[in-house]
Amino acid sequence: MKLSKKTITNILAPLVTFLLLFGFWEWAVSHYQLPKWLLPAPSGIIQSMVVNFNDFWPHILITFETVLIGFLIAVPVGILLATLITSNKIISAALSPFVIFLVTTPLVTLIPIMMLFMGFGQKVRIIGVVIQAFSIVNMNTVTGILNVPIIRHELMQTMGSNKFQSLRHMIYPTAIVDIFTGVRLSAIFATTACISAEYVAGNHGLGSQIIKYSQFLKTTESFACIFYVTIIGLFMYGFVAFLQKKVIYWKI
């Protein structure tokens, strides 16, 4: 396969930026002789990611699991609720304000309260992820469904299509671009929400480890965990982008 000039630029340009940034970081740390507990060098962080992998692995797994389960619940819940909201004026009036309430309320503020009746387990963290991630899917799906051109509704109307047929053949495919915008954002929200939940709830997951290492001034290990969080976030984002390409096959 021959790579086009554009592809090469698209790969090389961010890579060079990345190397420059890390190079500068590496240089600054040694030049100003910053102590490790304040700011470790990237080389040290990457070394720790490898050397301490066995310590990190169970937490990576837990975090990833929480993010993924929460995300996989949030997406269908968000889409279903949006479908419900847009199908009925009364339901819409009844539910819309609460969805906005959920989007605008930082989830971390709810977790300690949720912990009161749900404990420290993974369940409370998954619910936290769901609450934070579903609302953005919901909001974007509502937008997508409301933006369906009226002429397509009329087309379905001329055939006497029922609600389910309209959803399947026309409404969801029309709204899919907006839905995916929501899903992509929710993938990011899910990761953020999971780490926030782990900060406060329990001692499992990368979030709890970041707190733990920071308390002992083991900043290198802290950063290693943060890098692993980034990798999880990137994976989720890439997963959604991949899915989008597969699902929206008709946009060339």
Partner: peptide, 27 residues
């Protein structure tokens, strides 16, 4: 009745044949 719109009003995710036979599915 069959209604023909001013614009083609095709659904872009279906092939021309799938668009044409959509009324059969719905009816």
């Amino acid at each position: 009745m069959g209604f023909i719109f001013q614009q083609p009003n095709m659904l872009p995710w279906y092939t021309i044949r799938q668009n044409i036979t959509l009324p059969l599915k719905i009816f």
